[in-house]
Write a protein that binds this DNA or RNA. Structure first.
Lengths: 207, 207
DNA sequence: AAATAATTCAACCATATGGTTATATTTTGT
DNA sequence: ACAAAATATAACCATATGGTTGAATTATTT
């Protein structure tokens, strides 16, 4: 064998990565421990050696998924930059982020829906608190008449809707618009190209 | 007992309704036949008497869920009315529809994601085909310069995002914006009040 | 080299779950 | 009244699944 007693052994990571894929694709109840073991190419007992139980493994995956939704970008929202520039930066970076973690939003939403209690505090601390300054900034700019005349919460909801929903709705969009995978990628490329302007336009009062 | 040999016996409906609730809340794998039976206040074997298997019962619920997403409203999209009025009508009616079937979008999306093949044709026929005339109308109005300069598919994606996402994201919004159930209802009320104008504004070219 | 920790596997266990069967009662069409 | 369908229950079955155990092998520390 090779390096043991590291902080994260190679097998431990392989297991986690496999678990992440399976849980994100099928949800807690849809996932099978055997499938995770197979995908990680290890024996099932290794799962329990490292992660005690399905629940424990799931919670780690769940936590990481939430954290992935709000990396450096959260801090970006709290920088002391003008709103328009902030919106543009956020749009581009968040779209790229979701694009490379496109299974996460639906996964998190589905699990939150089944069990809103679990991870509630975690969510509140990791996301809820971090966006408060941004909401505050929206309120101030609204007072100055620089934004559309809507509560900050509504502006946020609209921005997040435009950014995230197409990924969550991907299977439906692909079917009803008859897009293969490559065409869906182009569909997202197109969004990347116009959404920064578009989101500024639907949030700020510029003409 | 009472009326038998009706098209839909009372117990059959009770079972279906219970199944609908449980499947929509927990998904195919998360649902327990016993829980459905309990909720319908009947014995488990009644489930199989009427619906053979979990799969069969699920498929019926799944189908109905998809159909509920596109009732009379689909036809509304194909009426021969001016685009602006159509957008306003659709926004109001679709928001009301989703509001009264708020579990359906996340349910359908989650199941579509786990198994995109199942129901693909059904989805295509029930939704895909029915929105084509609307897409066509968007394209024509775009040519005339009456809309934002985006492909019809993008306009549709944006409209649907704004309408549907807040319901799908409800558990997250409630946590991070700290809204109780009543406040979330107000949040939706607010959307109902401004979204018709807003969607017209972000879709059409009216200053 | 000895001790300890990490890794792997096969076999096994307990339970939950979907599904079945046998049987009995009630309702309804004719 | 009779037959057929509907309704209902309890007991049961087979299987899948999460989880455990124990023994063996390999690596790491000292």
């Amino acid at each position: 064998m090779k390096g043991k007693r590291e902080e994260q052994s190679s097998t431990e990571l392989k297991i986690f990565e496999a678990a992440r894929e399976v849980f994100q694709a099928k949800g807690l109840e849809g996932a099978r421990m055997q499938e995770i073991a197979d995908k990680a190419k290890i024996n099932k007992s290794m799962l329990h050696y490292y992660y005690r139980s399905k629940e424990k493994l799931f919670e780690k995956v769940y936590q990481l998924s939430i954290i992935r939704l709000i990396p450096q970008i959260a801090s970006l929202l709290n920088e002391d930059t003008p709103l328009e520039m902030k919106l543009r930066n956020f749009t581009v970076k968040y779209l790229e982020l979701i694009r490379h973690n496109s299974d996460i939003p639906l996964f998190v939403l589905h699990e939150m829906n089944k069990n809103p209690g679990r991870m509630k505090n975690f969510m509140l601390n990791e996301i809820g608190k971090k966006i408060q300054p941004f909401l505050q900034q929206l309120r101030e700019e609204r007072k100055k008449g620089n934004t559309v005349d809507l509560p900050a919460e509504q502006m946020l909801a609209n921005i997040m809707s435009l950014l995230v929903f197409p990924f969550i709705g991907r299977p439906v969009f692909q079917v009803i618009l008859n897009l293969d995978d490559s065409e869906f990628e182009q569909f997202i490329d197109k969004r990347l190209s116009y959404l920064p302007d578009y989101i500024v336009r639907v949030t700020l009062n510029k003409t």
